[in-house]
Amino acid sequence: MLTFLARRLPSVALMLVVTALIAFLLPRLGGGDPAQVVAGPDATLAQVEAVREQLGLDRPVLVQFGDWAGRIVTGDFGTSLISNRPVAQLIASRLSSTMELAIAATLLMIVMGLGLGILAGSVRKGGSRAAIDGTLSVLLATPPHVTGLILILILGISWRLLPISGEVSVFDDPVTGLTYLILPAFALALPQAAMIARLIQARMSQVREEDFVDLAKAKGVPPRRIAISHVLRNSLGTAVIVTGVRVGEILAGAVVIEAIFARQGLGTLAVSAIQSRDYEVVQIIVLFAVVIAVVVHFLSEILLAALDPRIRLDS
């Protein structure tokens, strides 16, 4: 197990370093001169140079990167160039909104993905099979933003069942908060759940063909037990890994979903920061999203190793 983890660590580290590098380079890639932005549009050349020196922007890029990464690791996320507030503070003010959405969507995704997947993998004949397959294909092909807009049109506009714009924190008012959360969370979760379900379904029908399922049958094991202990048990690894990958997609999808449902979360913060070239904020949000995605993926690999003795014991 430990050797397995040790073997995976380099690629996790590589991913984190590359992300940090990209995040660090974003302002420079953006073409805008950060010194110019800080100094203001009316600053003289000398003033801009002074700011540049003050910010350390005249030193070699690698040194700057080291400094920057050092600051990030110690928890200093810098200051917004536009509002002059610490980035950490800006993010903290938006975090709970996005977290509510992401957690709700992740839970929905896991429940629906596993449920639909097991259902699709177990029903093997007739009309219900076709119905499940069809539903999955449609959900799978429709990304969160389109799903969200369709939900708005049907549930929000036609039927006027749920609010489609704005938010209330579930901590302030759980019931109203949930009504605001339902549509965006579903929009985010449905396509990912369909993806998980499809992969579980494929894996289950693959496992069903294995000899050990025949052997279980030859042992006299009842069908339900075969389905659970043999078929499902051998499909769980796939489920865990795809779920791990999908969490990152939920975070990214939140950017668009927040815009559509007019929620004040990190996504809208990111968008407005990009539009106003507030790179300090963008950097941290990108880093934040990727770090969460990478960590969740790594956790799912650990869980996979725990589930599969071939990975756990062989290194």
Binding site: T19, L26, V255
Partner: peptide, 12 residues
Amino acid sequence: GFPSLILGICIV
């Protein structure tokens, strides 16, 4: 490893 939209944001 990059969530797809995050990648898009970086490129934009």
